[in-house]
């Protein structure tokens, strides 16, 4: 019994780590840009499919690097081709949000046409030894997922708190108008945000791709988990979002104790709904308005 609990907790941690990577990028972009970038899910899916593509032609390390770079370019391209044009027109949040859902659907269907509807596995992941901790089984890739997430969150924390770029990003997130008066160029910060956010999303996608199957609508499922985690923790707070996503991963996996596994996804939606209704600013965040 206790080993089942240990296994569920561990599964929760793994799922939470993946969701947290997605949530961190989503919430970083949301806090700086002040809109919900649903198409972040498309960026995550692109990360996985680019790695799938490049790993057929190159050895692992260059494949991973190439996939990361192309994913970041893809994310930045989304911003440049759509969001930036909308910002120029002073489009409202609602418009940006609908456009981002449009981009999400666009990406999913481009993947459908490019790679087909069948599930794919990334050939890098053939050697995947299994370890046992306290009666719970964990694969090497799952260890890598947890370690990479922890490392990235540490780096992100350092970047946001201790570097000039991080301080500038936080200043823009806090108050764009005042940030501009102290000489911060918002367009460069937006670019930096999309590079960082898309890199986080891309890495999330690659790790998920190594652990699970790839399917075209994976981006939508993942961005739902990501923004649910973000809403739980506070959309505008990056560490709140990471925390919220970990909570979501845990709750989903422990929920299987009580519910049929088909309802696993529904748990996220119900949590999303409950938090939006009762505590829309999340555990650590605050409500955001665009000036």
């Amino acid at each position: 019994m206790s080993s089942i609990l240990a296994q569920l907790l561990l599964n929760g941690l793994i799922a939470g780590a993946i969701y947290a990577l997605v949530a961190a990028g989503f919430s970083l972009i949301c806090s700086v840009m002040k809109f919900m970038h649903f198409a972040h899910g498309g960026v995550v899916a692109a990360g996985a499919y680019f790695l799938f593509m490049f790993s057929q032609w190159f050895s692992p390390v260059p494949a991973i690097l190439l996939a990361l770079v192309t994913t970041v370019l893809f994310g930045v391209f989304m911003d440049w081709s759509v969001y930036k044009q909308l910002r120029k027109r002073h489009a409202s949040n609602a418009v940006l949000l609908i456009a981002s859902i449009g981009l999400m659907i666009l990406t999913t269907n481009l993947i459908l046409i490019g790679f087909g509807a069948d599930v794919k596995t990334i050939p890098l992941a053939q050697h995947n030894p299994v370890y046992t901790i306290l009666g719970a089984r964990i694969t090497l890739i799952q260890v890598v997922i947890i370690a990479t997430s922890a490392l990235l969150f540490g780096l992100l924390y350092y970047l946001m708190k201790c570097t000039r770029l991080g301080k500038a990003l936080r200043a823009v997130a806090d108050n764009n108008a005042i940030a501009q008066t102290v000489g911060i160029n918002p367009s460069r910060m937006y670019l930096a945000t999309f590079i960082l956010g898309s890199a986080l999303g891309g890495i999330a996608g690659m790790l998920i791709g190594l652990e699970q199957n790839l399917y075209p609508s994976m981006g939508l499922s993942l961005v739902i988990k990501g923004f649910t985690g973000a809403v739980i923790g506070g959309v505008t707070s990056v560490h709140g979002s990471i925390l919220g996503a970990l909570v979501l991963g845990m709750v989903e996996n422990l929920g299987i104790w009580y519910l049929p596994s088909g309802y696993k996804d529904a748990i996220a939606f119900v949590l999303l709904f409950v938090f939006l209704l009762l505590k829309p600013e999340g555990i650590l965040g605050k409500r955001f308005e665009r000036g």
Binding site: Q85, A91, N109, I113
Partner: peptide, 22 residues
């Protein structure tokens, strides 16, 4: 191909309208 192509077309029209003729 037709299914995804339809979806892509709708998404492109939607985004294009939002950008150029909201």
């Amino acid at each position: 191909i037709v299914g995804p192509a339809r979806a892509i077309l709708f998404a492109l029209i939607l985004i294009g309208m939002l950008v150029y003729r909201p």
